[in-house]
Write a protein that binds this DNA or RNA. Structure first.
Lengths: 339, 339
DNA sequence: TTGTATGCGTTATCAA
DNA sequence: TTGATAACGCATACAA
């Protein structure tokens, strides 16, 4: 409650407030004796600087905003874990806000974060977002912004994400090398680079192995509305299964488990009737039914690097022009894709 | 960046700062005309009040601290989702900090949150925590504190959690009614009420169905250290399996999936060789191998209620003496416990 | 090396 | 109804 202030210390020690302030910030223009005196008193009465006052004065809050689609998503949670670790180490507080895959809500988050004075913002945009002007505006003002996981060409800022083309290529190539040629691709509908790149990786793998690309085996499914996602997945799967693909490559965490559930419900044997591999970072992949072959992203590392980049930016370090950091994905073969 | 301030408005409109302030806070002592004028100008230049300045002045930050073991845990993430929803609606920002099941880190979180001026703290203590003096101190100062999910008798504050006795009873009774009598109980080691209550529910169900309680079928396993948790689970399971129990009731999310993984690895057929039921809130329970019977907690609701309670407390509403809200658990029978 | 004075943006108290 | 002024706690330019 009643925290002790600089004035309290200054009165008790009979020195001026500014001297106390200097002693506490370890200024060079301060006598050794007084410094010790102040430090001792401060520690004894466990003085903690008032964050609000300091922020108001300095114009920095030592806090950064993090916008993600949903906290209730193991992949996101893993990234947040990485972000939190770096920020805690650097003395930055994070304010996490969820867009819930809604463009409107995403804008609201940005506004709220900005208004509350965060020093920078890192964001993984919603699948709904096609217009990035709310972020462009920040960027044009020189406000520190970093994109992570979900990135877009639209913005010229620092970006950290997994190598989606590589991951999709690995998955598709693995299916091909297992003898499948009729491979479906199911992805989340969005204009984000992710969707396009994973599709690209899929196509590149097909081409590289002389497997003909069939447009009808590719579906982009709206996964933004949690109420309708099951319905949408069911619809896409229904259409896809009519074509009797030998294998499916699902391009997002959500789709991978949803599709697995769908196939189980409809009594498909995996991998006998149909093979499955998908992007997923769930720790439960090995104990799914069947154990799920996955493309795993370095989620925690994505969070760490993005956070470090943003903090450097916030601190005004010259880290050069905006660049995109691409991290390697890891293929984990399990039963769902084994012949 | 350069946000517009009250002074900017006052200058532009040639009225005093205090009038502008009053207009914006919709004070009763303000003329309709000027109010409209100010509001219009503020909206046009999208004025946003400086949170720091207001906080400094008012002594409240409109932010609350949330301490949890780890954000990378689906049950926790679901609770956070509920917390976030309520807080967003009420205009409160949350600052999430992770204890990582470490007592020391938990104390550090509390100190940091307190120092950063949060208006209240809600916490789900670590399994390591046995000494609650860091929280008692806050409480004794009249600082708003709410315990959620993991509670303790040691603190006389508002608490929100699931009905653990009920959940454990349901799970155990279900196993008994399926014909099992040799039922093991594996739980996380802690002095928190949760551990004791789930054990209690287990024993009550045994007693109510005239099944004799066997001490050696109960193990409390240290799950605090992520490095050693697999090792500890393996050790406990190894000892337990020697006794050839017919079924296992695991008392935490972590243990439920760890045990499932362990049994799969060691080629036990579930439920043929051994039945399994456990507390878990994973959405993937239905597609685990085999689908996992669970006691599901109303995670989101726990978060919502706890957040609402804390906000009421922070706002100074008289919500009466500290009480404990117990929410019903839900039994979900799946293959892992089916005869 | 230390002290004095000012201001960050807001709200609240007092006068007008 | 409005305006002038002080204060929240801190950091800093300037004076001593």
């Amino acid at each position: 409650m009643s925290n002790i202030t600089l004035r309290d210390i200054s009165k008790a020690l009979n020195i001026s407030v500014s001297t106390v302030s200097r002693a506490l910030t370890d200024s060079h223009e301060i006598g050794e004796e007084t410094k010790k005196l102040v430090l001792a008193y401060a520690k004894e009465h466990n003085y903690v600087p008032n964050r609000m006052a300091r922020s108001l004065k300095v114009g920095k809050t030592k806090s950064i905003g993090v916008v993600i689609c949903s906290i209730d998503n193991s992949f996101v949670a893993q990234m947040l874990d990485g972000i939190d670790q770096i920020c805690t180490e650097s003395g930055y507080q994070i304010i996490i806000m969820q867009s819930k895959e809604s463009y409107e809500q995403e804008k609201a988050c940005i506004n709220l974060l900005y208004a509350s004075g965060v020093d920078g913002i890192m964001i993984s945009p919603s699948f709904q977002t096609t217009d990035f002007s709310h972020l462009k505006e920040l960027q044009s003002q020189g406000f520190p912004v970093v994109l992570f996981d979900r990135i877009t060409e639209e913005l010229n800022v620092h970006k950290v994400t997994a190598n989606n083309i590589q991951g999709a290529y690995q998955a598709t190539a693995h299916l091909i090398s297992s003898g499948y040629t009729k491979i479906a691709h199911l992805s989340s509908k969005s204009t984000l680079a992710m969707t396009h790149e994973r599709f690209e990786g899929y196509k590149q793998a097909l081409a590289a192995h002389q497997v003909s690309y069939q447009e009808e085996l590719v579906k982009f499914c709206n996964t933004s509305d949690p109420q309708k996602v099951d319905e949408n997945v069911a619809k896409a799967m229904n259409e896809l299964l009519k074509l009797q693909p030998q294998a499916i490559f699902t391009a997002t965490d959500l789709l991978s488990t949803k599709v697995l559930a769908y196939l189980n419900e409809h009594n498909y044997s995996i991998p006998e009737d149909i093979s499955l591999i998908g992007f997923s970072n769930s720790d439960l992949a090995p104990i799914l039914n069947p154990s799920l072959s996955t493309v795993r992203q370095p989620s925690k590392q994505i969070g760490e690097l993005a956070a470090q980049t943003l903090i450097n930016l916030v601190k005004g370090k010259d880290i050069g022009p905006a660049e995109t950091i691409l991290l390697d994905t890891e293929l984990q073969i399990r039963k769902s894709s084994s012949r």
